[in-house]
Amino acid sequence: MRSFVPVLTVVTGIFAVWYLAAIWLNAPWAYDKATRSGEVLTLQTLIADTWSQDKPKLPAPHQVGIEIWETTVEKNITSKRSLIYHSWITLSATLLGFALGTGLGIALAIGIVYNRTMDMSVMPWVIASQTIPILALAPMIIVVLNAVGISGLLPKAMISMYLSFFPVVVGMVKGLRSPDAMQLDQMRTWNASPAQTFWRLRLPSSMPYLFTSLKVAMAASLVGAIVGELPTGAVAGLGARLLAGSYFGQTIQIWSALLMAAALAAALVSLVGLIQRITLKRMGMA
């Protein structure tokens, strides 16, 4: 609560800058229109015009808000113009990719922790794999998978998976190795089998690390799904809305898709945070 007032101030500041920037960026077009129709703009009419243009360089926040309201609440969910429909397409690819990435990440981490050969040969490549800008490969992955008959959700989910497995591997390797020598010795004195050591000691102590990674992975997965939608030729999804908006200069549409993506990211990450708090509390770790 201590930081509520400062955060509110900063957010208000951002909106103020946004409104001022809208006046500044849209003014040339407003002046242009005025000279052609022979009007003289006062400060008041200038501001009114820059905040209500059809295709502004920067739409004012309330224009974006109205657009979001119209395309979510007032449209039928099944309609192709509904933002909820597009968000759902993106969300499903995100969640599938996130699940696949988390599964792959945990499996790799267990292999790396328990197998020395894997640790030495795979771990450097896991790190190197992230210096490859996978998002740049998105068009090729989509086209190639389409050519072998895989289309729809899965190609996008593959890109999300590639982006989200990395933080999970790194976090889980750290987490599974977090029990110290004393705790491992204690398990040995109890004559615990490797499986018992894993289920009763290593896995529980890795949970805080896992959840931190899952938050990063969720955000990365959403980015992957959005970029994965770009090369499909703007059919459906938030990424497709961005691309279609940029083709036709529909700035309000771009901004509303962008804000929707931001809201989705915030909701997903805080959902993981909520599960983290509940789980850790029940485990007695928080």
């Binding site: 955000a219 970029v227 990424g239 961005l242 940029s246 898709a257 993506a261």
Partner: peptide, 10 residues
Amino acid sequence: ALPVIGMAPI
């Protein structure tokens, strides 16, 4: 944590 890459078209 936001998909900032979406700013690209703008």
